[in-house]
């Protein structure tokens, strides 16, 4: 007792403060500070530059540029084709992931590696390759057009094909790990309770996969909206028909119409952000509904 009271005054003052806020995970303020700084520097600063630059336009000017018929048509194509591509990828990406996780077959590892190729390939290479395939005289294009009368290259359909190509890995790579962790016992339990195969997929497997599927969908969509390189080759870029919004921006830039370009870019940013917010909200809702967030 006497010893400890004798020692008390020498105790450094900072110990008291440190003790109060003690946490097993140190460095909170440092990591949060760094996160915010990095986010500002890399993401928010350039984005806000777009809005600041766009605000140099008066409202009627801005409105005229962003609602021009040619620009409007490009929004429809870009967002429409992106959503469609992401939806198609959600379905077929799930099937790919399923096959890769559930079955063993020769060359499985090669297939697994191939999935990532659209990530790595320069998009222009993908565009040129796709155009060569689907053009009127291409390997696939000649039959599609000759036999079925379907034109792919230089049409909105071509845009869709390119966007599907670049979006494949997202859904596969987000669903795959979740599917791997899924216990087969769950499906066995469902079967022993009398569920048919489709019932156990629909009621037991799919709800578990939905959040991951939505994440993959959102990523594929976001990637497709911003895609430029692979699309411009196959799209043909006919105004009002197969012209995507990123191309409009580039065209405006090439004509030194910087303000016009930023105005369109600002609209794209806002729409993309709203759509992603919606998808994230949907994902949070499904997660909550399925009891995962608790």
């Amino acid at each position: 007792m006497s010893l400890s009271s004798a020692l008390e005054p020498v105790k450094p003052a900072y110990r008291k403060i440190a003790k109060r806020n003690y946490s097993v995970l140190p460095g909170f303020s440092l990591s949060l500070g760094y996160t915010l700084f990095y986010l500002c520097l890399i993401v928010i600063l350039p984005i806000s530059a777009v809005f600041i630059r766009a605000s140099e336009l008066s409202w009627p000017e801005f409105w005229e540029i962003v609602t021009a018929p040619r620009v409007m048509a490009s929004y429809k194509l870009t967002f429409g084709a992106s959503l469609a591509a992401a939806a198609i990828n959600a379905v077929f990406g799930l099937m790919l992931a399923w096959a890769l996780v559930r079955y063993t077959f020769p060359g499985k590892r090669v297939v697994d590696a191939l999935i990532d190729l659209p990530f790595a390939l320069p998009t222009a290479v993908a565009g040129i390759a796709l155009t060569a395939l689907y053009a009127q005289n291409g390997w696939i294009g000649q039959y599609l057009e000759g036999v079925f009368g379907i034109k792919v290259a230089y049409t909105p359909l071509g845009v869709l094909v390119a966007l599907i190509f670049i979006g494949v890995p997202f859904v596969v790579r987000t669903v795959q790990p979740v599917l791997e962790d899924l216990e087969t016992e769950l499906e066995e339990a469902a079967a022993s309770l009398g569920a048919r195969r489709w019932q156990s997929f629909y009621y037991v497997v799919l709800p578990v996969l939905t959040p991951a599927l939505l994440t993959g969908f959102a990523l594929a969509f976001a990637r497709a909206v911003g895609e430029y390189g692979s699309v411009i080759f196959i799209a043909g870029n006919m105004p009002m028909v197969s012209e995507i919004t990123p191309l409009i921006i580039i065209t405006k830039l090439e004509q030194f119409d910087y303000l016009g370009a930023t105005a369109v870019a600002a609209v794209m940013l806002v729409v993309s952000f709203l759509l992603l917010l919606l998808i994230n909200g949907l994902q949070a809702w499904t997660a909550k509904r399925t009891g995962r967030s608790r």
Binding site: E183, E185, E188, T290, G291
Partner: peptide, 9 residues
Amino acid sequence: FQHYALFKH
């Protein structure tokens, strides 16, 4: 099942 296999969702 040993590990219950309850449907978590």
